[in-house]
Design a protein around this nucleic acid. Sequence first.
DNA 1: CTATGTGCAAAGCGTTTGCGACGGT
DNA 2: ACCGTCGCAAACGCTTTGCACATAG
Lengths: 136, 136
Amino acid sequence: MLEQACQQAGLKLTHQRLEIFSELAASTDHPSAEALHRRLRQRMPTLSLDTIYRTLASLEENGLITRVKTGESQARFEAEQRQHHHLVCERCHEIIDFQWQTFDDSVLPDEILQWGKIKNKNAILHGVCKKCLDSV
Amino acid sequence: MLEQACQQAGLKLTHQRLEIFSELAASTDHPSAEALHRRLRQRMPTLSLDTIYRTLASLEENGLITRVKTGESQARFEAEQRQHHHLVCERCHEIIDFQWQTFDDSVLPDEILQWGKIKNKNAILHGVCKKCLDSV
DNA sequence: CTATGTGCAAAGCGTTTGCGACGGT
DNA sequence: ACCGTCGCAAACGCTTTGCACATAG
């Protein structure tokens, strides 16, 4: 999958790109660049944080990964490209993916349809997860 | 309005706070700290950017304004506190507010209701506005 | 009069970039 | 051998902070 995409985009399939992508694809917690760096460093001790940033940027440009817009200072990433929504714990910053067919099917207000071209619509929920509620 | 809120929060009602808040309340374009600074500097030449940041932070803490989570590097702010949603042009970064009653009324998937305590749910749309579509 | 807020300048943080060395094709 | 990529270190932009003075209550 990554292989074809890289070829298509004229990107070389390097060891670093492969590892960064597969680590992200295996993660469900929407890691930050730093978090990925910490994890990958164990297998690849010389991997630099800069390379993570550069790789994430080029994978994003090619639509292979997504930068999750949380509004926090650190950017978070995901490999999941199917339509889904996010639920963010404002205490521990955990991010959960979920499906919501009712939302996907619902029609936008008329005024919006005339605004321009809508590329995507997503729901974002904020709250406090059970773990954080319990640990008070 | 700001007056009561400041009293309640134990904040002094300074000239700067008043001007920053009223400028933001009068803006519909979700300005950044820098944008506010540029606008206010004309009336208040000595107003520093730091004060804008500090003031926005304390107003936000007290629920008087909201930091809009766009995922861009610069934070954007709004004074509107009624439930509403955002539509972002990915070309010119314009942010439009809109109402969407159907969404507000719709019920969340069961799995989500068990996750913890949901504080708010919002829709965020991305696309390209007419102005940007035309100017290509 | 006292506690808070302000302006200034300097530091902080996540992220990006210029450079020379490295490695895939 | 060539061009893209990597690691290093230094720069960057936005935001935050320590300090001394000013100001609201």
